[in-house]
């Protein structure tokens, strides 16, 4: 698999390590109401879709950036990659 790194261009997936679903970026607030339940869902439960999946890959043997890769789990086709930092900032309501 080749991952289209937004800064470095196409890179072999072997240079990366895999973490899991991109929802892991959304760490719950430990002080909020229902934090125990929120952390259970965050740490242990997964959508695990058959089809398009957004997931975190770490460019360990490259520039050590975290990427959010969009990939089809039925075909292994990679549909896109973004810097995880950009995704996280966008989720928090715009780049700051």
């Amino acid at each position: 698999m080749l991952i289209p790194h937004p800064l470095l261009g196409p890179r072999d997936a072997q240079e990366f390590t895999y973490l899991g679903d991109a929802s892991l970026l959304n760490r719950p607030d430990g002080m909020a109401e229902g934090a125990l339940d929120a952390f259970n869902r965050h740490v242990y439960l997964r959508d695990n879709p058959a089809g398009v999946h957004r997931e975190l890959w770490f460019h360990e043997q490259g520039d050590r950036s975290w990427l959010v890769v969009t990939r089809n789990t039925l075909t292994h086709e990679i549909l896109g990659a973004e810097l995880a930092r950009d995704v996280a900032l966008a989720q928090k309501g715009g780049a700051k």
Binding site: G20, D21, N48
Partner: peptide
């Protein structure tokens, strides 16, 4: 295992 989610 290969190490990434897959149904392939």
């Amino acid at each position: 295992i290969d190490g990434y989610n897959s149904y392939a």
